[in-house]
Amino acid sequence: MTTPAEPDEPIATDMDHAPKADPTEAPPAKPARRRFQLIILAALLLVALWSAGWFAIRHYAEGRLAAIQQDVADQGGSFACESERISGFPFRFVLNCTPAAITLPDSGLSARVSAVEAIALAYNPTHLLAAAQGPLVLRLHDGLGVNAEWSAAKASLRVGLSGRLKRFSGVVDDLDISLESPDKLIAATDLKAKHGELHLLQADGDATALEIWSTAQGLAAMLPGAPALPTLNGDVHAILPGALPAHRDETVDPVAAWLAAGGEVKLDRLGVDVGGFMAVASGDLTVSPDGLVSGRVAVRVDQLDKLPDLIEAIRPGHRDQVARIIGPLAAFLKPVTVDGKTWRETTVTIKDGRATVGFIPLGTIPPLKLAKTAEG
Rank of each mutant, 00 (worst) to 15 (best):
T3Y: 13
P4V: 14
P4F: 13
P10W: 07
T13G: 00
D16A: 07
A18V: 15
E25W: 08
E25K: 08
A26K: 01
P27M: 13
R35C: 11
A43I: 12
L45N: 01
L46G: 11
Y60W: 15
E62H: 07
E62R: 05
A66R: 11
Q70N: 07
D71E: 14
G76D: 02
G76H: 06
G77R: 09
I86R: 03
S87N: 10
F89Y: 07
F89K: 05
F93N: 02
P99V: 01
L104R: 08
D106T: 12
A115V: 04
A115R: 10
A120C: 03
L121F: 03
L129F: 08
A131M: 07
A132Y: 01
A132G: 09
L136W: 10
L140I: 01
L140Y: 04
D142M: 05
D142G: 09
N147H: 11
A152K: 06
G170M: 00
L175E: 03
I177R: 01
S178V: 01
L179E: 00
I186Q: 00
E197S: 12
L198C: 01
L201A: 07
T208D: 12
L210C: 10
T215V: 13
Q217K: 13
A220I: 15
A220Y: 11
L223V: 02
P230H: 13
L232T: 13
G234E: 08
V236A: 07
H237M: 12
A238F: 00
P241Q: 01
L244P: 09
T251H: 13
A256I: 08
W258E: 02
G263M: 00
E264K: 12
V265K: 05
L267M: 09
F277D: 04
M278R: 15
A281D: 11
S288I: 02
D290A: 08
V299M: 03
D302T: 09
Q303T: 12
D305S: 14
P308N: 00
E312P: 02
I314T: 04
G317D: 00
H318T: 15
D320A: 12
V322M: 10
K334N: 08
T337W: 02
E345F: 06
D352N: 15
T356S: 03
V357K: 02
F359G: 12
I360R: 08
L362V: 04
G363F: 06
T364A: 14
